[in-house]
Amino acid sequence: MTEAISTTGLTKFYGEHRGVIDVDLGIREGEVFGLLGPNGSGKTTCIRLFLDLIHPTSGSATILGLNSQADSVRIRQEVGYLPGDFVTYEKLTGRDLLEYFANLRGHGMAHAESLAERFDLDLTRKIGELSRGNRQKVGLVQAFMSDPRLLILDEPTSALDPLLQQEFHRMVLEETAAGKTLFISSHMLSEVEIICDRVGIIREGSLAAIEEIATLRERVLTRVEIEFSDPVSAADFHGLDGVTDVVVSDHRLTCSVTGTVDSLIKAAARHTVIRMESAQPGLEEVFLAFYSDDADKEGPGAA
């Protein structure tokens, strides 16, 4: 099976400034891949290198089996792209813009019209008059309308309300069912974990790790707080599988859990539980999981 995206030592410096350093990435066709990292970590740089909008300082990228620089026009024929900040011709109406890009891509408007309808998007209004969310819809429509083999989406749901995010997730599922590949960047784990099969974690321009979502969940620390009806003893919770940082004060327990919460739940069940809260791990926690001593032993960048 050919790889949809494959990079070797991909490096980009903007003069003195770091873009990305030595990125080795292999994304299978048909996969939904998430690139996760904080702002300024190099996500957008990667994407712009794939589309040949910027050129690598060293290393190379192969997109759908084609060289990102030599065959960039053929690549872009097969790629739908949504930039992080979708800015386009403000004086054009949505329909005019989609028609222009459809002409440049050599296809009709039928799919664009049906996508716009699906997003409940008014194509007669000028793009400059649209709200940020509606403009993002135009961006999504133009990315999906050519029915591309590969979709590269930079923070696609950032401006969408929850309902539209769900609609977007459904579209992603349909695309994968049709065998398409998606490359999605985000700075929120919660966004990528719903839709992605694998996640690459990028930090200060370097790829720190590539993990299956399931594996990632196992390694990520979840903060758990349990309130019991009676005071409990910390000893009951020490030495449980994946449970650390146990602190008991009176009838309240806080701890960190990696992987499954099963052993904690079973231990807690011996007491009467009033309330249980677990915090969705943020990006900080994901990084902590990967930069703790444990992660270092296995080596960052281990795929």
Partner: peptide, 14 residues
């Protein structure tokens, strides 16, 4: 400078 070139060049055109 008005940030529209990026999107234009993402189309299959040299």
């Amino acid at each position: 400078e008005s940030h529209t070139l990026d999107q234009l060049l993402a189309n299959p055109i040299s």
